[in-house]
Design a protein around this nucleic acid. Structure first.
Lengths: 340, 340
DNA sequence: ATCAATAATGCAAGCGCTTACATCAACGGC
DNA sequence: GCCGTTGATGTAAGCGCTTGCATTATTGAT
């Protein structure tokens, strides 16, 4: 009790238990390599000293951190929340810890975060989307940190990814929009610059138009940040177009929520006067009124599968496969059938 | 070029630049302690080798990580998003990195996360709310990790905190509810068990009732998880009460959104048939219809101030002051004036 | 030129842990 | 009882960095 009150180290535990530090370390990391009696003694010492291993020291010595890093574009809205939560849960089951940071859709910031996470000893990285400098992948290779792309699936890409085809998914939704009789189509997209998901979604709409004999150039497109406010603003602009579009397809549910809010303010009723669609099917989609017709993305499934694949890669059990996740259109009330 | 392709270390840089490791280290950490010419040579070596310092090694040697940990109850919804973002921004300005983890409102999980973050070398911790075992604070003290409580302000508490009085804020809202003529008041609260914020909000309503000569025991109270679904469920139960409450005050905006959604499904119009209020004023509050009358919490301000205070504590510039943030009621459309 | 100050750099001791290897004890077959 | 095994534990060498102290270079005053 006369001892200095400061954080106990492995050494302190070893002394208290009357064994060497190696034994204590083994007790903690591979308990079966230590005889029962010793282990009990050690564990008791650990307990009574309130010992917590020093992470930095462990990482340094073991060259392994059991930490996975993830860099997502934003934490501001719920777009990535559910998928990330599932990712984390699965990681936890596999004995890993997740470190998250957000890049605010800025490639330069992402680059820096990647370096930071690697420097922090991340054993593997989850990245969103494919669009990225080759140099970054080289850096990761040099540091021997496996990476996996999520929220996007592209069999063409050389990097492993688990996700869905943004193009196909949005195309399917656009098909049903067109099938509902819409011809004057507008779209509010997230910025496509350096964002393959956003790009894919725009392409999806275009393809559906072409497939149905519409001129893809007639698509009224506005690109903007993925924010409610921007969705509202873009919607306002679109409503001034002559002739006015009969449907506004949004790049995600957040943008759509903004559009809906603005519609309310402008006194334009949805879907009677104009239809609106979203993408992602986050909780928000059900809350707004009218509830959004949107594309359901199985975020949890994607998150869990990504975690499983990435840990397999980290542990050298996989070279990195790509996994395609299915999406489906969910019809709620914001898309109207046009009389004709 | 014949060299092994693996991550370069300080030593490699030192050799490449023809100086000692000490000098390289100084170039990186206190550039002014090194002469211009040398620095340039070193920096060039750093650049051309693509060197990134090993974080674990740095933490170990310096006993400083420039990392702050934060443990929030949930990432699922946006309740903490904005405040945390501001916290992070300010931290970044001060040269610190944020590590976030969520406890799912589980004290045991929180305990573990605290240990993890400390083991990871966090220089300081941001905790939500005061309710917490004394043992935890002792642990933090032993490891000499300063901590700051946010989202709550309690001058009585011995721990420093930056936040607002949940009780006063909710009381103010309740006052205006009562002033609007409501007498049969119901409340959907988050679980108050181990949650001083939730507890404070309930007390606030009770106090307002008492202050206005109402019997606090007539408050119809349901406690539940802070989830949309639970808000909906609780609302349904409340609507079955006889006599039916004229207003449902919710512990936060998420619960209120659930209530609103359920009202829609039940065909009960808000605020004509029943009023609903929220708390927090997150983005959601403006999107739902009717837009929520709620309590505005200046999350950004709170986040920034918390970051400033905590870094000051970490750097020994402050003993830990408590800061009170003001809230205010914002009147939108979900609260009706009762005719009489 | 000479010397004391002062600035720039190098030296080397750790930080707390893991792990290859060495050591030692216990045990069964002869 | 002796020896080869096997299993439990100890020894000590790092992991890559920072930093107090020692050493060397520089500068200005004399």
């Amino acid at each position: 009790m006369g001892k200095t009150r400061s954080a106990p180290t492995l050494n302190d535990v070893a002394k208290a238990a009357g064994v060497s530090t190696a034994t204590v370390s083994r007790c903690l990391n591979s308990p079966d390599r230590v005889i029962e009696a010793t282990r009990q003694r050690v564990m008791q010492a650990v307990e009574s000293l309130g010992y917590t291993p020093n992470f930095a020291a462990r990482v340094m010595a073991a060259k392994r951190s059991f930490t996975i890093g993830a860099i997502i574009p934003t934490m501001d809205n719920a777009i990535f929340a559910r998928g990330l939560q599932a990712f984390q849960d699965q990681l936890h089951e596999n004995g890993y810890t997740l470190l998250v940071s957000s890049s605010a859709y800025d490639p330069e910031a992402e680059r820096e975060q990647i370096r930071t996470l690697v420097a922090r000893g991340a054993d593997g990285l989850l990245l969103i989307g494919h669009a990225r400098d080759a140099e970054i992948y080289e850096y990761l290779e040099r540091h021997q940190v496996p990476s996996l792309v999520a929220w996007s699936y592209d069999p063409e890409a050389q990097r492993p990814s688990v996700g869905f085809s943004n193009k196909d998914a949005m195309c399917e939704l656009a098909q049903s929009v067109i099938a509902a009789g819409h011809r004057r189509i507008a779209m509010i997209s997230g910025n496509t610059q350096g964002n393959d998901r956003a790009k894919g979604r725009v392409e999806g709409v275009r393809r559906a138009m072409v497939d149905n004999g519409l001129d893809a150039n007639t698509l009224a497109l506005i690109e903007t940040d993925y924010e409610i406010e921007q969705g509202a603003e873009a919607f306002r602009q679109l409503m001034a177009f002559v002739p006015r579009p009969t449907v506004v397809m949004c790049g995600n549910d957040v943008l759509a929520a903004g559009a809906l809010r603005e519609a309310g303010r402008l006194g334009i009723s949805v879907p009677e006067q104009v239809s609106v669609t979203g993408f992602d099917d986050i909780e928000l989609a059900e809350i707004v009124s009218p509830a959004l017709t949107t594309v359901h993305v199985p975020h949890r499934e994607m998150g869990r599968k990504a975690a499983r694949e990435l840990t397999a890669m980290v542990e050298g059990k996989s070279e990195g496969r790509s996994i395609c996740i299915g999406t489906k259109v969910v019809n709620r009330c914001s898309l109207a059938e046009l009389a004709g």
